[in-house]
Each structure stands twice: as structure tokens, then as C-alpha cells.
């Protein structure tokens, strides 16, 4: 049994002469959180709609949980939960009535449905507004209601399109917690977003979209190695010692460059090594008579990867 829940091969979508999605390959594994990242208009939403069979592909194959979304859309949609970008609910109905309608569309037996609705609302911390009209809900609450719908559906795969856009930091944090909760429940989650730092914290793997193509794919660390160069960057700040000279002999260190304005005395230095050399660096600085004021591990940030990558693309063009 394969561990992939979604397999995409050579997926293509043409709008006239424009290639909105240009022959992409994509695998999503069971129980992982996968991020589809990229600027607006890069083809993320189109890809998602093709996964659900809501838009017909111009070419290529898609396999979702063993089903073809074009020919067996009902089977796919029964097992996949979808939270669209800026999800809408019927404002004149209560949260419960909205979910009840979905439950009827899913043909969930009535008694089951009531239990599943209240459990799902509990899991997104909306149990207290179950019988309030959705018109009174904030954007964050609507997104959570959308997650509740996926929970109620007991979906095997959740596809979330820009779930955090337009949310305040606190609401974003809560939503990401709920997405982690989905993963814990064994749901494979596909998130599309252009907000990188938020998404980075939850994604196991990401794919970077650019003009309909997947430019990069892998875990954040892998991408960082690919784009920012291999190596383990750390930040060193010390006084009373010439860091560049002192660190030259440390085993594993590849480059030592000043961070920020050069020649500012006790400025920070960026050290890139092929492994974690923090202990060795600290020892060397102390033994050279300097006093270490800062030693930080620089986590590769997706933001950096993203910015650097698109700079390179632009320079190449």
C-alpha cells in the first residue's frame, strides 16, 4: 500500500495560451502537512480546484485517494475536505444549520450528524456560538467553522486555500493549532499560502510555485540548502578579538563574513559551516582572549528562501 494520498503527474491547465498550471508533479503523503507556496496568481488555487474536480485539467493525471477527480468527483469530494479562500457561509442561518446542510449533502444520518456537528464545533472552540447566526461571526470564526466542517466530514485529506489570510496574529496562531490538530487526527493537510513565516511553522514539506511551475519542493531545510547554499549558518558577536582571524582555523567553517556594517568594531559575523560548530566557535573565541556576547543558530527562514529564489529568477530573466 502506497503512502501517498494525492499523486499528481504532469498536471496542466491552459487558459487560452497561458499556462496557469504547467505540467506539475506532486505527491502528498499520508498524515503530513504540505504547503503550496507562491505569489498570487502562481497557479495554487487552480491546482487545488483540479484536485477536487471543480475545474477540468487540460492534461496530466490526478489521483486522490485512488480516485480520479474528473470521473469520480463524488468519491473524491466525499473524502476530501476543502476550505476555500475567504470561505462563505449562509449568513441568515446559524452555525449549526450551516453544518447541518453540509451533513445532509454528505448523507450523514441525522442522529449521527448532530453528534458530529457538536463535536466538531467543540474541537474548533466554537461550541458556545453553535446557535448564533453566522452573520455575527468574525473572519477568524468563519475560518474555524470551515475547519469544523472538515472535522465533521471526517475527511482523510484537508485542502485549505489561504486559511490564514486576513487573520490577526492571534487568530492565525489558533488556526494553525487547529491545523496541527487535524494532522494529529491522521488527516493529510494541503495548505496554500503566500504568508510564509506562519506556514513554515506547521509544514512538513513545501512546494514553491512560480508561474504555474513547481520551482522547489522539499522540507524547509532542504530548500534552504538548495537556495541559500548548503551549510549551517550561525551568528557570532564578540569583543576583544578579531573574529575573522580567530575562526579561520576552526574545523568545518567555510566562510566568515561580517553581518551588517563592516568595521564597526564588535559587529556581528555570519559564519557558515558544514555542521553545527557553535561549541567549537565558542571555545576558540574564549581561548583567543575575546568575550563572546552572542552566538545564535540561524534557522533558515522560508521567507529568505522565497525572497532569494525570486531574486535569482528575476536576475536570470
Amino acid at each position: 500500500m502506497s503512502d501517498n494520498v494525492i499523486e499528481v503527474r504532469g498536471l496542466l491547465k491552459l487558459y487560452g495560451a497561458t499556462r496557469a498550471v504547467d505540467a506539475i508533479d506532486l505527491d502528498i503523503r499520508r498524515g503530513e502537512i504540505f504547503g503550496l507556496l507562491g505569489p498570487n496568481g502562481a497557479g495554487k488555487t487552480t491546482t487545488i480546484l483540479m484536485l477536487l474536480g471543480l475545474t477540468e485539467a487540460s492534461g496530466g493525471t490526478v489521483n486522490v485517494l485512488g480516485f480520479d477527480p474528473v470521473r469520480q468527483p463524488l468519491q473524491v469530494k466525499r473524502r476530501v475536505g476543502y476550505l476555500p479562500d475567504a470561505v462563505g457561509f449562509y449568513d441568515h442561518l446559524t452555525a449549526r444549520e450551516n453544518l447541518r446542510y453540509t451533513a445532509r449533502l454528505l448523507a450523514i444520518p441525522r442522529r449521527d450528524a448532530e453528534k458530529r456537528i457538536s463535536d466538531a464545533m467543540e474541537s474548533v472552540q466554537l461550541a458556545d456560538v453553535l446557535d448564533k447566526r453566522v452573520a455575527t461571526f468574525s473572519r477568524g470564526m468563519r475560518q474555524r467553522l470551515g475547519i469544523a466542517e472538515i472535522v465533521m466530514k471526517q475527511a482523510e485529506v484537508a485542502i485549505l486555500d489561504e486559511p490564514t489570510s486576513g487573520l490577526d496574529p492571534h487568530a492565525t496562531f489558533e488556526l494553525l493549532e487547529m491545523i496541527r490538530g487535524l494532522k494529529k487526527a491522521g488527516v493529510a493537510v494541503l495548505i496554500s499560502s503566500h504568508l510564509l513565516d506562519r506556514v513554515q511553522s506547521v509544514c512538513d514539506r513545501v512546494a514553491l510555485f512560480n508561474r504555474g511551475k513547481i520551482a522547489l519542493m522539499g522540507s524547509v531545510v532542504e530548500l534552504a540548502n538548495q537556495v541559500l547554499g548548503a551549510g549551517h549558518p550561525i551568528l557570532v558577536e564578540a569583543s576583544g578579538v578579531d573574529i575573522a582571524v580567530a575562526l579561520r582555523g576552526v574545523e568545518g567553517v567555510q566562510t566568515v563574513v561580517p553581518e551588517g556594517a563592516p568595521g564597526s568594531g564588535n559587529g556581528a559575523w555570519r559564519v557558515v559551516a558544514d555542521r553545527d560548530v557553535r561549541a567549537a566557535v565558542a571555545q576558540r573565541i574564549v581561548s583567543s582572549g575575546g568575550s563572546l556576547t552572542r552566538l545564535a543558530d540561524l534557522q533558515p527562514s522560508l521567507e529568505e528562501v522565497y525572497t532569494r529564489y525570486f531574486e535569482e529568477v528575476r536576475d536570470a530573466a
Binding site: L74, Q75, K77, R78, Y82, P84, V87, G88, T102, G146
Partner: peptide
């Protein structure tokens, strides 16, 4: 306009 269409169509109906 209420953005309910894609959510409803992502349920198992044609």
C-alpha cells in the same frame, strides 16, 4: 458572491 458556491460544490454533489 457570498463565496458559498465553491464550499457547497466541494461536497459530494454535482
Amino acid at each position: 458572491n457570498r463565496r458559498t458556491l465553491s464550499r457547497v460544490l466541494s461536497q459530494p454533489i454535482y
